[in-house]
């Protein structure tokens, strides 16, 4: 038999000069690029993008309760005092809003969380805004304290316990008499921050909004 039988197949011609384009047309590289594109499309248009959240603002009046996690708040009353009232803390008058606050989380929560993101607007009898107290950017003027013993509002609130809190909003001299107040308490969430630490964020789209008539207080 012919020792050259069966004849050997000729070696495939060496691919030359394919260059950069050749690399990207290799089936393996192409598969990878297609996968990457698919993942990118899903990330941008698919379920990975955060779904837009609906606003949930629960409006409540005296004695009604609403949740603004981790607090359940029940408005009690709003009283306008002149500057002689000690709680106003200065020569100008103030409105003292009383809320019953219950922490629904499993741990004590610092009371600063209550005022963090809080927004108060006072209106006169015609509905015109008189004063606003806005803590949303950390530069507000709402002071808080425990109604029972005057402990600072920043002191931790225990879970499950209903604590009566006072929120003090200064009313400058000469301002029209306020007759109603709207106090917005936003819900809080904890998100990872700087990799490991849970950090508190308030979400004004989920808010317990308390509307109260203001009565004139005797100091």
């Amino acid at each position: 038999m012919d020792p050259r039988w069966p004849p050997r197949a000729a070696p495939p011609p060496r691919r030359r000069g394919a260059g950069v384009l050749g690399f990207f047309t290799h089936p393996l590289v192409l598969t990878f690029l297609y996968l990457l594109a698919a993942v990118g499309l899903v990330a941008v248009f698919g379920g990975w993008a955060p779904a837009p959240q609906k606003s949930t603002i629960v409006e409540i009046g005296p004695g009604q309760s609403a949740m603004a996690y981790p607090f359940e708040i029940t408005p009690v009353q709003a009283v306008w005092y002149d500057g002689s009232e000690e709680r106003c803390g200065g020569p100008a008058g103030c409105v003292v809003v009383t809320l019953d606050v219950r922490v629904t989380a499993k741990t004590s929560v610092t009371g600063t969380l209550l005022t963090d993101g809080m927004n108060a607007s006072l209106a006169d009898s015609s509905g015109t805004a008189v004063v606003t107290g806005d803590e949303r950017f950390g530069q507000g003027n709402i002071l808080s304290r425990r109604a029972q013993d005057g402990r600072a509002g920043s002191v931790d609130l225990p879970p499950g316990l209903t604590t009566r809190m006072e929120f003090i909003i200064a009313v400058p001299d000469g301002a029209p008499a306020p007759s109603s107040i709207r106090l917005d308490v936003p819900a809080h969430t904890w998100r990872p921050y700087a990799g490991l630490l849970a950090y508190d964020w308030f979400d004004p789209r989920i808010t317990a909004s308390a509307a109260l008539p203001i009565t004139r207080g005797e100091s």
């Binding site: 004590s108 402990r151 002191v155 225990p158 499950g160």
Partner: peptide, 10 residues
Amino acid sequence: AENRYLADRT
């Protein structure tokens, strides 16, 4: 019930 109450430093 695993609720955690913190001490009051004030």
